[in-house]
Write a protein that binds this DNA or RNA. Structure first.
Lengths: 231, 231
DNA sequence: GCTCAGCAAGATGTGCACAACACTCGCCGG
DNA sequence: CCGGCGAGTGTTGTGCACATCTTGCTGAGC
């Protein structure tokens, strides 16, 4: 058996790369590093206990994904997203979300159904004065779980890419009190409940349409801000 | 005026990177490097007159785009695409092509119309015993021109990404005589003619649907091979 | 003749020192 | 007082030597 044991970490170069990439991507998308923040190659290399060279490879990947941008002699900065590009991305994500339920749909197995149940439980665990970061992590986990409903690998990859590219901007609105966090959580709970109901009767297309609708409404709320809330 | 003159090449690090990336991507997609070919970092670095370090950055980008894959101690190889993933990608490209004509469409200006006229002329320039590589370049140019019909930047980026990822596999079929090159050229000429006609009356959605139909039929012909051609 | 341990060659990955570049701050001339 | 210039500092980009890994070969042992 030449296969490495999945439990004990062989800590190969590739694994290190993937781990660092995931860590930095999470920090960027959960706003630990706000847009505009400068990422010090030296400091990050020291934190991960490696030299600048392999870290630069991670940053290059993040740059390819549009999450950071390096400028010679200046620094590497977390990117921001312009309003127009954000709107374009949301319009695209709407269509892709619908495709998720139409292209190569796979009914959830027992493990995935259990995962959705756990996620639903988490959405109900928020009381007054909720933790914004925990909410952000929940949203991300739900999104990644929904992605498992299609077997179309390129579609999953693209949806994930666009999600990581734009969600932090929406999150920024929540953190900046441009959106009402408690209200957003309540709306999100309804969304997850609706989706789980659709999944229980095996209607993946409806689940995708529900997700599509919520992405659309979520963007509209962000665009209007908290002062223009209507029924 | 701090802006660099667009004419004279300042040959900055970024420009070098983009140029090398484009060159290698073209070579991979036009089958100068067939799937499975090993790319020698040292040889490529010598060819571009640089050291391995910046070249490795280019290869890392190509790996992120799924065009090559590096294995420690073995080499960097041009990726192949499995049949199932190819089918998934084509199904996705169908939908995205249709989106191209529906999401943020922009009517072609004079320059773009002239470009299409030139492309149409090129499609008619193929005689007997055509050059496969010239045909491949033409197809790529037409695809990139069609992409200009939408202003949705993320959509353009994704379509381009998927195109570069899969077209070389289709090209491989043509080169391997699994498809009839002359017939493919004739079909492609009809496609371009139909699309230009649709554009002339300003119907971008129809142009996108024509493209969608041709992508679909093109994949079907490849899947069936030359021995199973039916009306 | 077959097997397998060990070595050698060649590939990518890493660390480090230096080059190239951009911004800042202070000095100097008008 | 003001404007511009130049050294200084800090950053990313590059080159090079070495580490690590994989693979194929080779030859001793059975």
């Amino acid at each position: 058996m030449t296969e490495a044991t999945p439990e004990s970490a062989p800590a190969s170069a590739r694994d290190r790369f993937e781990r660092m990439h995931g860590v930095l991507r999470s920090r960027i998308c959960l706003l630990d590093y706000a847009p505009g923040t400068r990422l010090s190659e030296e400091a990050l290399a020291a934190e991960f206990g490696i030299s600048r060279t392999p870290l630069r490879r991670v940053l290059a990947r993040l740059e390819g994904e549009g999450l950071v941008q390096s400028v010679h002699g200046v620094g590497t900065f977390v990117t921001d997203v312009e309003v127009e590009e954000l709107a374009q991305t949301y319009r695209l994500r709407l269509e892709l979300a619908e495709l998720t339920g139409r292209l190569d749909p796979v009914p959830p197995d027992a493990a995935l159904r259990a995962e959705f149940a756990a996620l639903l439980s988490r959405t109900r665990g928020f009381g007054p004065d909720p933790d914004p970061r925990a909410f952000a992590e929940l949203i991300m986990d739900v999104f990644l779980a929904l992605l498992k409903l299609t077997a179309n690998e390129p579609l999953r990859e693209i949806c994930e890419r666009l999600y990581f590219r734009t969600t932090r901007i929406w999150l920024k609105s929540v953190f900046a009190d441009r959106l009402d966090l408690a209200a957003e959580i309540a709306i999100f709970r309804r969304e997850v409940e609706d989706i789980v109901m659709a999944l229980e009767v095996g209607d993946l297309h409806s689940a995708a349409l529900i997700q599509r609708a919520h992405i659309s409404m979520s963007f509209e709320r962000m665009r209007r801000g908290p002062g223009d809330r209507r029924l």
